[in-house]
Design a protein around this nucleic acid. Structure first.
Lengths: 236, 236
DNA sequence: AGATAGTGTGTATTTTTTACACTAAGTAAT
DNA sequence: ATTACTTAGTGTAAAAAATACACACTATCT
């Protein structure tokens, strides 16, 4: 640390955004990590993040960072916490605002691989079970993001952001199970989910599976909006 | 706004803390507001807040601001959101981290009146029903803090931070009613609250009331710690 | 034709939440 | 000491929500 500080210029105060970008693919929950190509923490894996420009709001900065990295716009993002320990960055005072985002990975044609900049050599969707130690306090940032998501999924329909537009109830249940880290009862899950009345049953079935194909459903935003006043409770 | 900008020096980027300080007294929920004595928004009411120093963490800064204003330490504080719109401060880019705090007002001997500095001419505990329009985006900040508290009180025992150490069940219920903004059933409330097993019944009774005195209770931190893994649900 | 793998469905039990009203205890006034 | 007043304190029944649990069906593959 000391060496780094003396080699690199010091700066005063900066704010940055760090993003925990969740993706769900083939039943697996992943997050997008970049491999740093600059000091400090060169060669470490880290959460994608960047300095907030003078003329952009925090929300815009988060969207911009996500766009630069994935080519996607209009993604669900949510601010969850701000990290401001004095020495969280070895080069100076950096206060960082944490955002998480949720992306449909399966069959998402718009999704570009992260552009390789001089600060990130690599961007990789990393399964939750295989996370390396991250640079700075990013382990802590990730932990808090995941806590927030786990909590939020229980009362807000954010799971749908991770699924393809048409999905089966089993896929939905698996996603809940992965995030909540517990098995749910199939019959009870379906009963509850269908009872909310926010799913639209389609006339279509799953394709390309070597067993009985399941019905496909869609999240019904209209119906959800109507129920919005009442807090729902999912997956508990 | 334009005038202010031209009179006062511009600065680049700063982060600040703004505090929503809740107090509960005689059945009334209040927040601590200061009356600004400097531009911009001179003479307006505002949330207490200040610039974060280079060498202090966000949490420390929040504690410091609270201490300077009330003389209290060790108060329950919680970060709830960070506000970063580009033009939220007319003089430059100020990103502000919102914290809320909870203080027992009734009989709190340590509580000093806020010191009058050159930036705040006055500090006043203002009942929730009588809030004026606030400076900057402080209305919005307050709103989010209150939402957070309303939500948090339903599953975490933060209400006790606002009550005196010894309190009656009716006082506790009133506090929930004020925060949740709805009447609760007396029998159901008591049943539920006592069932959690986190209250300790004392051998004492309320004094100085002109009617039958109620039993006093204490929040039992030990028992709560044991139950902590389970999420509790209060007041729903 | 049979093996395989996941789909889809109902009921009984327990737990939690809700609704609801009167008596008891202490204080204050006469 | 009687009375009026005000809040404390208590239980039960009904409704709603959560849980536990197992098997027949259907599509595909060989």
């Amino acid at each position: 640390m000391k060496t780094v500080e003396t080699i690199l210029p010091k700066f005063d105060s900066v704010f940055s955004i760090d993003c925990v970008i969740f993706g769900f693919d083939e039943g697996e929950l992943k997050i997008l990590l970049i491999e740093r190509n600059v000091e400090p923490f060169k060669d470490w894996w880290a959460l994608p993040g960047y300095i907030v420009e003078q003329d952009e709001s925090l929300d815009n900065a988060a969207e911009r960072i996500l766009y630069e990295l994935t080519g996607l716009k209009g993604i669900y993002m949510d601010q969850f916490y701000t990290f401001g320990d004095v020495s969280r960055h070895p080069q100076g005072r950096v206060i960082t605002v944490g955002y998480y985002a949720m992306i449909r990975l399966s069959g998402n044609k718009d999704l570009k691989p992260g552009p390789i900049t001089n600060y990130a050599r690599n961007a990789v969707w990393t399964p939750m079970g295989e996370l390396p130690n991250l640079a700075f306090d990013h382990d802590q940032i990730f932990g808090r993001a995941f806590d927030k998501v786990r909590n939020k999924i229980s009362y807000q329909p954010i799971a749908f952001e991770l699924l393809p537009e048409k999905f089966t109830l089993t896929q939905l249940q698996h996603l809940y199970e992965v995030i909540l880290n517990k098995k749910l009862d199939k019959r009870n899950f379906r009963k509850k989910m269908l009872n909310y009345g926010i799913l639209k049953e389609l006339d279509e079935k799953q394709k390309g599976v070597s067993y009985r194909a399941a019905k496909l459903y869609k999240f019904d935003k209209r119906k959800y909006a109507k129920l919005f006043q009442k807090e729902l409770s999912f997956g508990k």
